[in-house]
Design a protein around this nucleic acid. Structure first.
Lengths: 128, 128
DNA sequence: CCTTCATGTTTACATCCGTAGTCGATTACG
DNA sequence: CGTAATCGACTACGGATGTAAACATGAAGG
């Protein structure tokens, strides 16, 4: 029973920063990833390399040899990651009810007018 | 500059299970908390005691002496915890846009009809 | 009173995470 | 051809987390 499916392992916060770079553009070399991510987080190249390794181990990223080095690409889509994390939150905090999450955000005044308008438009669209 | 405000520290997943017990009913003794959470998670009393200690250290839980033992109560409201976690998710994944989260859930078909109805009703209420 | 039970405190330990240095091999440049 | 730069792999290490046992101390019961 080989575990060939991507991303059973959890992606940590620091790792996500690396994924974002790859989601934005890929494939990238380790250096390119570092250029994209390291400055904003104050990381050294070594840190980025470690995170890339861990992501490869977690099968969240795959490598293609390119001469001496590797080109890195995401193996999990950002959409799937976002879905997983969102569902986890909804389950953990709102008993699986997405509406519960929205009620909560509304109550916490965490919804801007813009949010409300967009959600309303979305709803209309879905109803169609 | 004393840090007297509750919960700057992050509450972990295991710790949240303990918080849930206290949010459901409080104050509770360590034993009562254990009775409430240990079976479902397969924990021993010792584990619950450790988690309670850490929560006290994190100022997420406060104690009141009750003779020989302590009574534990939450110091952070569940609502605030939920708000914090929700905002963190929205920031980390949807650039701070709650509508983005909503659009995403819709696209992932993670919204049931019930969710949609409830959200619609919510919106109507907010528009009032 | 002395033993036992209950309960909080301390210690333990494996794993994960954040952050990074070092090593070994390979490539490229002089 | 030899030396320097490059790059992935391995090692490191402190803190957080999950999980729990050992210990100390006070209370309760015989």
């Amino acid at each position: 029973m080989a575990d060939d499916s991507p991303q059973n392992e959890r992606i940590s916060e620091a790792e996500q920063a690396v994924m974002e770079a790859l989601w934005a553009r890929s494939p990238l070399t380790a250096n390119e990833v570092a250029d994209a991510v390291a400055p904003a987080r104050g990381w050294t190249l070594a840190t980025v390399k470690t995170l890339l390794s861990r992501l490869v181990a977690k099968q969240a990223v795959e490598t293609a040899p390119d001469g001496k080095r590797f080109l890195y690409s995401p193996r999990v889509a950002r959409v799937d990651f976002a879905t997983g994390e969102s569902k986890r939150l909804v389950d953990r905090l709102f008993g699986g009810s997405a509406a519960g999450l929205f009620a909560h955000l509304a109550e916490a005044e965490a919804l801007t007018d813009k949010d409300l308008n967009q959600i309303e438009a979305l709803l209309k669209e879905l109803r169609k």
